[in-house]
Design a protein around this nucleic acid. Structure first.
Length: 426
RNA sequence: GUGGGCGUAGCUCAGUCGGUUAGAGCGCCGGGUUGUGGUCCCGGAGGUCGCCGGUUCGAUUCCGGUCGCUCACCCCA
């Protein structure tokens, strides 16, 4: 093992066949669901200009980029997320496109970070976005896609939920409870950490967000317990808050109408780290609480304009294959057994080789999968190989039956054999 | 970037209280005579015990460093 002078880079994965099958199982489900919702697939380059991320995604992302200077003296980076690329691509062509734009992608993304559970330096992320529609139905549509992506893979509301909130609502509530404009960003960051450091939240709200003890207690109370109905009642005089509460109620109502109500929970502490979110945000998480978020997304109405495009409202999500893969494995959900080849051709001795090749190719022309030993081997050995390849049937070419113009066909599962005319096989 | 744990065959691991030929299971390869697999039986290949250095008569075993893996923190897709 020490001789392995060429090792995989840390945080990167190889995909030998069994792993690639698992990955494709996920990809296939993602693609089926997106197409089912009428989304079109797109892609972009894995390298982008560093500037695309520096001010658009928030400064926190930049320290973790896989970036370098190329031979043309350009500052570039492996893409850490897809949304800025989407915004860039659309900035060049959205004006001539019918709205709303419904696009999805499954890019490989990169970040320079130390790896840990559920987090590598590379992953594949399903991105689904609706651009050019500010109606809350677009928000509901997008989260429904995410939920159905997981359902398609066999997960149910026993296994995961969507936690939904709204940045606009949170900003309104914090404002109403005494957080000033200048403290808003700090307050967001504190709320974002509620799950992990709930005991410190009140203290931090006082120290870093300029609240007194009573205000901090009120904020905390809302964060942990408030339902949408309670907020609607308590803040019905606050036009900003009331409007956004109503919007969320409509959103939840739409998801209930789709039959996905069981999957949705209102949770004001969901903020999302990325700076560009503006409205409703959501996360999908496992009910066991074992893993980090499976998926995150939300509304980002300013991003396209920031990247220099047409000012268009947008909403979307990203779902990575790493955390999801762990969840699926924990639940024993996977692609099922490999299909194997249709036929394996056994030659009893070397005289049948050319006949075997003729039959093999004729069958392949008919879209059947066929394999055979690439060198002369005993019949027992050839059958072992056929078994290992999962062959459905074995075609045995021996001198006796070939002399009669036939071949023996053995059904591997049952062991049943019959003689078939060579003419039928080619 | 910080801290903890780990590092023995392809994989999962045992073992050596420091001593001279390092083991198991699975996997892989081969065989079980004359044309039939999955089970079974037999055999074989494969490890400088992660790497470098130190202590020692002697280290895979102790110590240090380093690299890698892993978990957590930071942060977050």
């Amino acid at each position: 093992m020490s001789k392995a002078s060429f090792k995989r880079l840390p945080g990167f994965r190889d995909f030998p066949p069994e792993d690639l099958r698992f990955r494709n199982h996920i990809f296939d489900a993602w693609r089926r669901v997106a197409l089912r919702y009428g989304f079109q697939e797109y892609d972009g380059p894995p390298l982008e200009a560093l500037d695309l991320y520096v001010e658009k995604s928030g400064p926190e992302i930049v320290g973790q980029l896989y970036n370098f200077r190329d031979k043309g003296d350009r500052e570039i980076t492996l893409r850490p997320e897809m949304t800025p690329s989407l915004a860039r691509i659309l900035s060049e062509r959205s004006r001539s496109m019918p709205k709303p734009i419904r696009w999805f992608s499954m890019p490989q993304l990169f970040r320079y970070e130390r790896q840990q559970r559920g987090r590598l330096r590379e992953h594949f992320q399903w991105n689904v976005d609706v651009v050019g529609e500010d109606d809350v139905a677009a928000d509901a549509e997008v989260v429904a896609v995410a939920i159905d992506g997981l359902r398609e893979l066999g997960l149910t509301h026993e296994d995961f939920r969507a936690r939904v909130s709204s940045r606009r609502l949170l900003a309104g509530l914090l404002g109403a409870l005494g957080v000033t404009e200048e403290h808003l960003a700090a307050a967001f960051a504190i709320v974002d950490k509620l799950q992990r450091e709930g005991d410190k939240t009140a203290q931090r709200l006082r120290d870093e967000a300029g609240l007194d003890s009573e205000q901090a207690a009120q904020v905390l109370e809302l964060l942990v317990g408030a339902t949408l109905d309670e907020l609607a009642e308590r803040f019905n005089g606050h036009e900003g808050v009331a409007a956004e509460v109503a919007r969320l109620q409509t959103y939840v109502g739409y998801l209930q109408a789709m039959g996905l109500g069981d999957y949705v929970e209102f949770d004001l502490s969901v903020v999302r780290g990325l700076a560009y979110y503006t409205g409703i945000v959501f996360e999908l998480f496992d009910t066991g609480g074992e893993l980090r978020a499976i998926c995150g997304g939300g509304r980002y109405d300013r991003l396209l304009e920031l990247v220099g495009g047409e000012p268009l409202p947008a909403v979307g999500f990203g779902m990575g294959d790493v955390v999801l893969g762990e969840l699926l494995k924990d639940h024993g959900l996977g692609p099922g057994p490999d299909a194997g080849v249709d036929y394996f051709i056994v030659c009893v001795d070397a005289e049948q080789r050319e006949l075997a090749l003729a039959i093999a190719h004729a069958q392949r022309e008919q879209r059947r999968s066929v394999a055979y030993a690439l060198r002369e081997q005993g019949v027992a050995k050839q059958f072992k190989t056929a078994g290992a390849l999962g062959a459905r049937e074995v075609i045995v070419l021996g001198p006796d039956e070939v002399a009669r113009g036939n071949a023996v066909v053995r059904v591997m599962a049952s062991g049943e054999e019959r003689e078939v005319s060579l003419e039928e096989l080619r």
